[in-house]
Structure formats: C-alpha cells, structure tokens
Amino acid sequence: MSIAERIPTTAKGRVGVLGAGVGLWALAYWVNEWLWDAVLFTGFGLDPTSRITETIHFFLYDSLKILLLLVIIIFASTVLRSFMSVERTRAFLGGKREGVGNILAAGLGVITPFCSCSAVPAFIGFVAAGVPIGVTMSFLIASPLVNEIAIGLLLTLFGWQITALYVVSGLTIAIGAGWILGRLHVERWVEPFVFDVRLGGQVIDPSLGLTFGQRMQMGVEEVKTLLAKIWIYLLVGIGLGALIHGWAPTDFFATYAGADNPFGVLIAVLIGVPLYSNAAGVMPLVVALFDKGLPMGTLLAFMMAVVALSLPEMILLRRVLRPQLLAIFIATTGLGIIAVGYLFNAILA
C-alpha cells in the first residue's frame, strides 16, 4: 500500500501524522548530540582526546546530522514546490520582455520543481511559447545554481545573512548571464529543429489536481530517490570534512588559499567546475574549510561552481544548443561566480 493511501484524509489525522513525523525527527536530532559520546567513549572505551577518536566522532555526528537535515529539507521543498510546475512558469514567462523576463525567470527557476533530465523538453517548451532564449537561459542557470538543499543547509549551518548573500548573488548571476546571452543574439546557436517544434495536445499542469496524500507521497519518494543518488557524495564530503577538521594544521588553508591570495577564488572555481557532486556533498567540506580560516567568498564560489555547471547537464543541453552557445553559457556563468567570490571576500573581510 502506498503512503498516499495510508495518510488520513481528515484534517485532524493529517496534523497528527505531520506532528508525529516532526516529533520523531526532533527526537533523532536531539539524540544525535550525545549518542556518539555514549557509543564511542562509554561503549567502546575510546579516548575522547585522541585525534583519531575525534575524527571518527566528527564523521558519525556530522553524517547523522546532515542526513536528518537533508530529509526535512528535501521533503519540505518537494511538497511546497509540488504547487509549482514548469508549465505554470512558462505561462508566467510567456509574452514577458527581456529584462523583466530575466528577473522573473531567475526567481521562478528557484521555486519551480525541475530535474535536469527535463531540461531539454522545458527548453523546447519555453521557446515554442515564445519565451526569449536569454530569458529561458536565466531560468536554466538559476535552477541548479540557487539550490534548495544549499539554502536549507546554509541557513542551519551559517545563518540567514550568508544564505541571503548566496541567494541574491545566485539570482544576480542568472539574471546577468541570461541577459548577456540575449544581447549576444545566441538564437543562431540553437539547433534549428527547436524552432520547428510545435507543442501539440493539451498541456497538463502537474501541479494541479494532486491530493494532500499524493503531495506527501511525492515528498517521501523524492527523499528516497535523492538520498539513493547522493549518499556517496555525502559520505565522501563528510569524510574529507572530518579529515580536514582533525588533521589539517590550523593555518594551512588560510596561508595558501586565504583572502590575501589573489588567485584563491579562481582556483576554487576551476576545481569546482569539473567536480560533479551535490550541494549536500559539498557543504561538509565548506564547513570544515571555513573553520580552518578559508574566506566565505571563496567557499561560496566553490560551491556554486560545483552545483551550477555539471557535465551531464551540458551533454543533455548539447541536444538543443550548439557548442558555441554552450561555451558562452559556461563562460558567463563561471565569470559571474568568480566575480561573486571576490566581491564577498572584499565585503566580508
């Protein structure tokens, strides 16, 4: 029996189920604080002051903590975003001019549920509805760049100021890069077949007509599929974070990649672009490196480079975009991320 059928249909029952879920979650989060002390120090009798024990403790504690945070972030954002859809976004964007259109597209890119495997059908749909290419690109850049998992984790780990800086700068990059692409008249580098496609049939809006149970089900399914997909990045990220936390000399990174190194951001972005990971996998590294004195601008630029530009999405988009356009897309987004990194290092210094 699916979750949708098991969830009570009365308002009272629904509140009960959600309340019980939140309660269980809070209990697990609270237990995590002392569970590993009990297991490692009391249970196995390990020395709490030894560096190896400390690294293991950090790894176990962080793994459970980030896992719990991810469950609630993915679930909540999936349920909330089930009220939005690419179809609805397209209806909003249809007939909008460039400029206003870019701003709107970037904002909608953040809140619209969107999987990169839908990038090509969405691109075709937008173009067929007369949405300008630059505006469409603003949507496609913002969607992975301003990532809901990154927002949730930054909010809990670094507070709202850093989160706001991340969101605003991500949106600015998406708006700016899309606008520049529009000015360059990149239509000539879109595969011609795109302009011949006519949207047929009756467009179905996936956000409509869902029951409460179905939206809950979507949240649970998304938690399962996403965790199954990213757990390895997560473990590698937390493992590296634990090693850096326990073993890297305090000033090691600050000396070589600190705010006074003019190439710090550039190097971080160059490392980040080819790295194919996930915001959840990168965040434990960001926390560990921040503790070791790396500036926030460099770290945000690194994270953005990892999530915004990924090889699999480029390969998909190659079906509709010529290499010239892909190159300009990567260059403008990459330069935007580098600029944001330097700007933040200057502001936050």
Partner: peptide, 15 residues
Amino acid sequence: DYAAIAGYGVMSTPA
C-alpha cells in the same frame, strides 16, 4: 524523441 514528446504538449518528463 524530444520533438515527439513536445508534440504531446509535455514539458516535464516522465509522462
């Protein structure tokens, strides 16, 4: 085929 998918008016896969 992307053109065929669009022919059904579908923008979000799977359908």
